[in-house]
Amino acid sequence: MTIKTDDAFAQFNALINGNMPEQYKELLKNVSEQGLFYQQLIDSVNDNNADLSKFWDLPTTLGFATSSSGQAEWLQSFAEMNSFKANTDSPFGEQFTHAFTDIPLKIQQRVEAVQSSLVKMASLHNELSLLALERFESLKAESAELSTEQLCKNWLQAGESAFSDISQTDDYIDTQRSLFESLAELKDTQTIIAEQISGVLGLPCQQTIKDLQVGLHKLRLEFAEYKESTDATVSKLTQTIQRLK
């Protein structure tokens, strides 16, 4: 049977652009994306491509390589996270000229700290990819005959075992911690600057909004407790009346 690639992808595009439920579209996109991934993996293995380590790139696997709606909004404004590690030789200012015209020194320093942590994380991710590749090659050497299914299982085993080992090293944990700390400091600095600008423009400050939210929350709780107390009383009275009848 001849599979007509063009027909399959035409059908795919028609479905994605059609009225199919979003959940089904997401499934098709996920399956298509992974199908292409495994296709590339198998092609590369069969072509004896030396550079296989990219197939265990962790940020790409997890979808962190590009900015997405899953990330906190404040972070998305700093464009693709991978661009931090890709442009380590570029002066900081050049990377962000398009986003900022005048970056306060403090925020600049905070972003540089984040960048430094990301570079270290990228290095560890690279180490993970290489370790996974090493294990993949070992598994391949141990197999007498390598079916596609076995190849994919080996890929998975190599990746998960490498991740398990690397992610539990002190280096990885410490680097991750530094990244979180630098991100927290960046966010705090950003918040302070936003407050200053809000003040200048006469907009409600964060504290005002927080006060409103806290007030609303307390009001809700008071009402719920009052309602529960009333319900309990009504229930007791109802039972009493029924007993008296």
């Binding site: 049977m1 599979i3 690639t5 399959a8 059908q11 795919f12 479905l15 199919m20 089904y24 499934l27 098709l28 399956v31 298509s32 199908g35 495994y38 296709q39 198998i42 092609d43 069969n46 005959e145 390598l146 079916s147 596609t148 190849l151």
Partner: peptide, 22 residues
């Protein structure tokens, strides 16, 4: 071992079936 083409053909066949089912 399964060749790349065989894998691709099998995968595409299954993917087409999935699209039809959806």
């Amino acid at each position: 071992p399964t060749t790349s083409q065989q894998y691709n053909d099998t995968w595409q066949g299954e993917f087409i079936q999935l699209m039809e089912q959806l």
